[in-house]
Amino acid sequence: MAKTQDASSSWPPSVGALKDSLRRHPSGWLLAVQLLTVVVNPLMENTAAGRAVFGVFGIVVLALALWVINRSQAVNWIAWLLAVPSVALSLAANVGGQSQLVPVAHLLESALYFYTAGALTAYMLGDARVTFDELLAAGATFTLLAWAFAFAFSVCQSWYPGSFTAALNTESPRTWMELLFLSFSLLSATGLSDIVPVTAPARALSMLEMFAGVMYIAVVVSRLIALATLRVSRKP
Rank of each mutant, 00 (worst) to 15 (best):
7 A>M: 12
8 S>C: 05
9 S>P: 08
9 S>V: 00
10 S>K: 03
11 W>D: 08
12 P>C: 10
12 P>E: 00
15 V>D: 12
16 G>A: 07
17 A>N: 05
19 K>Q: 14
20 D>N: 11
21 S>K: 11
23 R>A: 11
23 R>W: 13
32 A>P: 14
35 L>D: 00
35 L>W: 11
35 L>T: 15
39 V>P: 10
39 V>Q: 01
41 N>I: 09
45 E>Q: 13
46 N>I: 10
47 T>Y: 06
48 A>G: 08
50 G>D: 06
50 G>W: 10
50 G>E: 05
51 R>S: 00
51 R>F: 03
51 R>H: 03
52 A>K: 10
52 A>P: 07
55 G>D: 01
58 G>C: 02
61 V>Y: 05
64 L>E: 03
70 N>F: 15
72 S>G: 06
73 Q>A: 15
74 A>E: 04
76 N>F: 15
77 W>K: 13
78 I>A: 09
82 L>G: 14
84 V>W: 06
86 S>P: 14
86 S>H: 10
89 L>P: 01
91 L>Y: 01
93 A>E: 02
93 A>L: 07
95 V>W: 14
96 G>V: 08
96 G>T: 05
100 Q>R: 05
100 Q>E: 05
100 Q>P: 06
102 V>T: 15
104 V>M: 15
105 A>T: 07
107 L>S: 15
108 L>C: 11
110 S>A: 15
110 S>T: 13
112 L>F: 12
113 Y>D: 14
113 Y>Q: 12
116 T>P: 02
121 T>H: 05
128 A>F: 15
140 A>K: 00
140 A>E: 04
143 T>V: 05
144 L>F: 03
145 L>K: 12
147 W>A: 10
148 A>C: 07
150 A>W: 02
151 F>G: 04
151 F>K: 13
152 A>H: 04
153 F>V: 03
154 S>M: 00
155 V>Q: 04
160 Y>E: 04
164 F>A: 06
165 T>H: 03
166 A>T: 10
166 A>W: 03
179 L>M: 10
180 L>E: 10
180 L>M: 15
182 L>S: 11
184 F>N: 07
184 F>Y: 09
192 L>D: 07
193 S>F: 13
196 V>Q: 14
198 V>N: 07
202 A>E: 05
203 R>W: 06
206 S>Q: 02
207 M>D: 02
208 L>S: 10
212 A>C: 09
213 G>C: 02
213 G>D: 00
214 V>F: 04
217 I>R: 07
218 A>G: 14
219 V>F: 13
223 R>A: 06
223 R>Y: 10
226 A>P: 14
226 A>G: 11
228 A>E: 04
230 L>M: 15
233 S>L: 15
233 S>H: 13
